[in-house]
Design a protein around this nucleic acid. Sequence first.
DNA 1: ATTGAACATGTAATTAATTACATGTTTTAA
DNA 2: TTAAAACATGTAATTAATTACATGTTCAAT
Lengths: 192, 192
Amino acid sequence: MKVAKRTRIRGISTIGQRNRLQYIILGLLNQRPQTGYDLAKAFENEIGEFWQAQHSQIYPMLKRLEAAGEITHENTVAGEKLAKKQYTLTPAGREKLVAWVSEPSPELTPNKDEFILKLYFIKTADDPRIQPMLREQYQLHQAQLHHLQQRYETVFNNQATIDQAYGHYLILDHAIEREAHYVEWLAQYLEK
Amino acid sequence: MKVAKRTRIRGISTIGQRNRLQYIILGLLNQRPQTGYDLAKAFENEIGEFWQAQHSQIYPMLKRLEAAGEITHENTVAGEKLAKKQYTLTPAGREKLVAWVSEPSPELTPNKDEFILKLYFIKTADDPRIQPMLREQYQLHQAQLHHLQQRYETVFNNQATIDQAYGHYLILDHAIEREAHYVEWLAQYLEK
DNA sequence: ATTGAACATGTAATTAATTACATGTTTTAA
DNA sequence: TTAAAACATGTAATTAATTACATGTTCAAT
């Protein structure tokens, strides 16, 4: 069996060529049968908070997964003649999904934040660009924090929802904590 | 002038096609003239903490930047005949670097963390996979935290170094805070 | 003397992902 | 009724990045 090799620089591995989209699609189809269009929509909604994919990547991936026997589709027609393909997980697909979730994730992902990258090239504390940059990032992350908090209040307003989507709850909680902490860190270096 | 377009999903933009490597190379050459080999080394050292690039990407990029008039090179020979190309920023290259650092960075970068992605597909709090996953991530991020703290102690052991590499200091401080907070978050959900 | 690690520079093949191109249907609101 | 938004499915072109292929030199340790 072929195993993907990864470059590894002091524990931080590259992330580009791992093809996680296939697992996301399997995971989404495990929730319920869906069309490619539905999956593309999912990337504009909750999963879009932490992963992106366009329909131009999704449709070919659906064909690949079907060719591999991990999903199947059923043709349906909406209205008079609008063709739809409803995709479903096969047992093999479900197995692959479970295997992926169960296997270790021993890699740190580099966070490719352009602001951080720019800071690296600023040498002195009195560089006049620093404060405007901090202010811009403060606004950006403050807004994102509010957005995530609103999502939390909308989605997880009762214990039942948390119980039914516990992983989603965890990662939203994590994202909120991360943004709150980012904002705090920025505030620490912002001049009053 | 052609301007790169970006997809945007509720403020989170994609990051793939932005070609930041060119700016990193300009930034590194601004510090001092260097060879492609030197630049590749830099990605194994401090800049490697938050950005990666292989020599197979660096050498072609150097040619592109030189063709664009942003860098030039000088041939030197080490020992008897080992050819080296020492690259230097041109005024145009320096201008481009300054422009990039100065322009806004109004985008949030999605953090493509595989562990987070897997969590999303776990539905209930009593799923037996959660605790082992949390423990694995705890170890991973604890180790990374220690690594970053050691780097901090090695590199920034005096005020003069902080003053001369203030941006680097900021981002290392940020990375340490981020990891410490990640570890705390994991601990919160770890069963004793 | 020899050998392995580090120095040094490239190209080729492949994959993932983005952006653009392309076409048609159904629903909803003005 | 008509026009725009949303539904629905694809392909093509391009870019960034990874992995592998390819070659040769110099230095340090044995």
